[in-house]
């Protein structure tokens, strides 16, 4: 146990070490770190000045892989993925290959001049929209995401609702993402979803399908916030003390593969931002893609992984327990 990091020791104590993948059902592609926002919690450190954007030849390599495998779901993220110049083409190509496509949107991009027709594009291509909307109170949301973001987000959600997004049985799925506005853990996903549904309808007339609660990872811009606010030690103590073996057994890296803007492979988007590529003998770049070796790879872990195993657990699809 001497060479194991603290998270691996926790896994070991719950008979989960080494943590391995159980397959790949979600192919998550980060198409770039360019974004129109500068959110305080962003683990990507995304913003308007970032130059890392996935090129078309890397996207073509992703499509080749999908062609050769039966991975059912594509999860497109960023930055603001919509700002990649080949974003629409990329989605259409995945759809041609019959895959389910999810897009993680910051919502405000949909209010920008070149992107206002995106809701219709999403609907035409049956894209599942997963939208950042970390609180139903304007003051709380703007404190995290910037002044004016709340109002723009509400307008985007109303536009999505107007074409059927969020309505049961419409076939247009709209899920919202909550993350805590500070150094504390998420409430119960089920209870908070009920609050969101009630408050969003009552206050703004907005409907949606599901709420995902996601823990803030102690990396990127949130790590800087934890340090500058002197919350790092207490936050780490909190997520370590809240380690939940059941959540650990269900973490998303066990069924997700994350692709970086340059084609590098990672176990998750958080490892991607830390530069911790797939390892332990599995290929770490899309050029060397090997589905058999990647499907049962050993996951690369670090102390940040406690963020995904605290309490009810956390993943790109919300709580895991």
């Amino acid at each position: 146990m001497d060479n194991l990091n603290p998270f691996d020791i926790s896994l070991s104590k719950s008979a989960l070490y080494p943590l391995t993948a159980t397959g790949i059902t979600i192919f998550q592609v980060n198409v770039g770190r360019l974004c129109n926002q500068l959110c305080k919690h962003c683990h990507v450190d995304a913003g308007p000045d970032r130059k890392e954007v996935m090129q078309k030849n890397t996207m073509e390599a992703c499509l080749d892989i999908i062609e050769k495998t039966d991975i059912p779901t594509i999860d497109i993220t960023g930055g603001a993925p919509e700002m990649n110049p080949n974003f629409r083409w990329f989605i259409k190509e995945f759809r041609k290959r019959g895959r389910h496509v999810m897009v993680r949107s910051n919502l405000t991009i949909l209010a920008e001049p070149d992107y206002k027709d995106l809701p219709e594009f999403f609907a035409e291509n049956k894209v599942e929209v997963i939208a950042s909307f970390p609180h139903y109170l304007e003051q709380t949301l703007d404190r995290q995401r910037g002044n004016g973001v709340f109002k723009k987000s509400i307008e985007a959600l109303k536009q999505l609702n107007s074409i059927g997004y969020g309505k049961q049985d419409s076939g247009h799925v709209l899920n919202l993402v909550y993350n805590p506005a500070g150094a504390f853990l998420s409430p119960s996903q089920k209870a908070l979803e009920a609050d969101y549904k009630r408050e969003m309808l009552k206050r703004y007339g907005i409907i949606f399908n599901n709420l995902y609660t996601i823990t803030n990872m102690p990396i990127g811009r949130f790590f800087n916030y934890l340090n500058s606010s002197e919350n790092y030690t207490s936050y780490m103590e909190k997520i370590i003390l809240s380690y939940n073996p059941t959540a650990a057994s269900l973490v998303m890296c066990r069924y997700t593969l994350s692709v970086g803007w340059d084609g590098s492979l990672y176990d998750c988007d958080f490892n991607q931002m830390l530069g911790m590529k797939v390892n332990h003998g599995a290929p770490s770049h899309i050029k060397a893609f090997d589905i058999a070796r990647l499907c049962n790879r050993q996951i690369v872990t670090g102390i940040h992984c406690y963020g995904c195993t605290a309490g009810g657990g956390s993943s790109c699809g919300g709580a895991v327990t």
Binding site: H135, Y136, L137, Q139, T140, P180, G182, F184, L185, S186, P187, S188, A191, L192, D195
Partner: peptide, 12 residues
Amino acid sequence: TQTCLEKGSNEE
């Protein structure tokens, strides 16, 4: 304060 936030209470 932290418990209330983690149980889903808002600042109002």
